[in-house]
Amino acid sequence: MDVPIFSTQLSLEQFTLITEPMVSIICCMFRELVITMIKSAILLVFVVLPGFAVSAISAYYLVPEWVELERHHAYYQKLSQSPSSTMRDLSIAQAAENRHRINCFAEGVGVLLGGIIAAIGIHGLCTLPPKNAEDP
Rank of each mutant, 00 (worst) to 15 (best):
D2E: 06
P4Y: 00
F6L: 07
F6I: 04
S7L: 06
T8S: 06
T8F: 05
T8Y: 07
T8K: 10
Q14M: 11
F15A: 03
F15C: 11
T16D: 01
T19I: 13
T19K: 04
P21R: 15
I25Q: 14
I26P: 04
C28I: 15
M29G: 08
E32F: 08
V34C: 02
V34M: 10
K39P: 01
K39I: 01
A41H: 08
L44I: 12
V45S: 11
F46S: 13
V47D: 01
V47P: 09
V48G: 14
V48S: 12
L49V: 09
P50V: 02
G51M: 03
G51A: 04
A53I: 02
V54G: 03
V54H: 14
S55K: 07
S55H: 07
A59D: 10
Y60A: 04
Y61D: 09
L62C: 02
V63L: 07
P64H: 02
W66K: 00
W66E: 04
W66Q: 03
V67F: 14
L69M: 11
L69C: 11
E70L: 10
R71K: 06
A74Y: 08
A74W: 13
Y75P: 00
Y76W: 11
K78P: 00
L79D: 01
S84M: 00
S84N: 04
T86R: 02
R88S: 00
D89W: 01
L90R: 01
L90M: 10
S91H: 04
I92M: 12
I92L: 12
Q94N: 14
N98E: 12
R99M: 14
R99L: 14
R99I: 09
R99F: 15
H100Q: 14
I102Q: 11
N103Q: 13
C104N: 09
E107W: 08
G108P: 14
V109G: 10
V111P: 08
V111A: 08
L112N: 12
L113T: 06
L113F: 05
G114Q: 09
G115E: 00
A118T: 03
I120P: 06
G121A: 10
G124L: 14
L125I: 15
C126Y: 12
T127H: 15
L128C: 07
L128H: 01
P129V: 01
P130T: 00
P130V: 00
N132I: 00
A133M: 10
A133C: 07
A133W: 04
A133I: 01
E134A: 08
D135T: 05
P136R: 02
P136K: 05
P136I: 01
